[in-house]
Computed example of a mutant assay.
Amino acid sequence: MSTIYDVAKIANVSPKTVSRVLNNDAPVGEATRLKVQAAIDQLGYVPSTAARAMRSNKSGLIGVITGAISHNATAGPTGLPDLFIVQGIQAVIQASSKTLLIADTGDDSRRVAHLIRTFQEHRVEGIIYVADYHQQVSLPVHSKDMAIVLANCFDAQQTPAVVPDDEWGQYHLLKRILSAGHSTRCVP
């Protein structure tokens, strides 16, 4: 795998000049820029996002921990399927300059601590934990530097959470049923 030093050698410039071309953060003459770009193309060089993340603390990665992939939808309480929530998260992340990494628990909550640690090791900028139904959860202890948001759940530690508004949904569903001419009377 090629490095910035290989590109610099072929382009006959310093590694700092290659860095300036890649990051577009300082003036570089057009002829030099073209030489560096030609060397990049010749080598098939791809910048290391790991190295860039170490310098900037910005990996561009968002981690999602869910059981939606392996979840058995016929077991237990149900609500808004967690897979729909993950798809919504993907749509929002795709519109940004971030990349979504998804880790599935395999329906084993004991894996959550390992998955959080793995995401921390890969320097994700934040983690979204998606529960399979609206419930209280207890996540394992994790670094306070890691931003975590809960989706479809909440915890006792006041972790930021996005939860369904069941009351609003039921109110509007009933309102729609009544406006369609149906009654609320129960049949024994």
Rank of each mutant, 00 (worst) to 15 (best):
V130A: 15
M146E: 15
G29D: 14
I69H: 06
V18Q: 04
M1P: 13
H172M: 04
Q158I: 07
N72T: 15
A26N: 09
T118R: 03
G169Y: 15
Y171F: 12
A11M: 02
A53I: 11
L150M: 02
H172Q: 14
I128M: 09
P140D: 04
D155E: 14
F119R: 02
P15Y: 03
I89T: 12
K58V: 13
A53D: 08
Q157C: 13
V162F: 13
Q136F: 03
D155Y: 04
L83N: 11
L34T: 12
S96V: 00
A103I: 09
R185T: 14
D41C: 01
V187K: 12
L139K: 09
H122G: 04
I128F: 04
Q158M: 11
V46T: 08
T66G: 06
D108I: 10
S138Y: 01
S138W: 00
H182D: 05
L22D: 00
D166F: 10
H122N: 13
G29T: 10
K98W: 14
N72Q: 07
T3A: 01
A68L: 02
I85Y: 12
A26G: 10
R176D: 08
P160H: 10
F154W: 11
A147H: 13
V141Y: 15
H122M: 04
A103R: 13
S179P: 10
N24M: 07
D107P: 04
L173D: 02
Q37L: 14
A11L: 00
A151G: 08
K16M: 08
L139Y: 06
S138E: 11
W168P: 05
I128D: 00
R33Y: 01
M1Y: 07
E30Y: 05
V141S: 08
G63W: 09
P81W: 09
G63R: 05
L83Q: 14
V124M: 06
P164H: 03
R33C: 01
A11N: 00
T78H: 11
V163Q: 07
H172D: 12
I65G: 02
G63M: 09
L43N: 02
I116V: 10
D104F: 05
T78M: 15
A11Y: 01
H172C: 11
G76H: 12
E121D: 11
D166K: 13
M1V: 05
N24R: 15
P77Y: 06
P140W: 00
S143D: 09
Q157I: 12
R33L: 01
S179M: 09
A8T: 00
N57Y: 11
H134M: 06
L150G: 02
R117M: 15
D6F: 10
I116W: 03
N57C: 15
M1Q: 11
R55L: 10
A91N: 02
A156F: 10
V21L: 04
K9H: 05
S143Y: 05
Y133I: 05
V86M: 14
V130L: 10
I10H: 00
H114N: 15
K144R: 15
V46N: 03
V21R: 00
P188I: 05
I85L: 13
V124E: 03
D25Q: 03
V86W: 15
I127N: 00
Q94K: 12
D82R: 00
V13K: 07
T66M: 12
V13M: 04
D166T: 15
F154Q: 13
Q158G: 08
S19A: 07
F119D: 02
I102W: 03
K98T: 08
H134R: 14
H114F: 06
D166I: 13
G181Q: 04
G29V: 10
Y129A: 07
T159V: 12
T159M: 09
C153H: 04
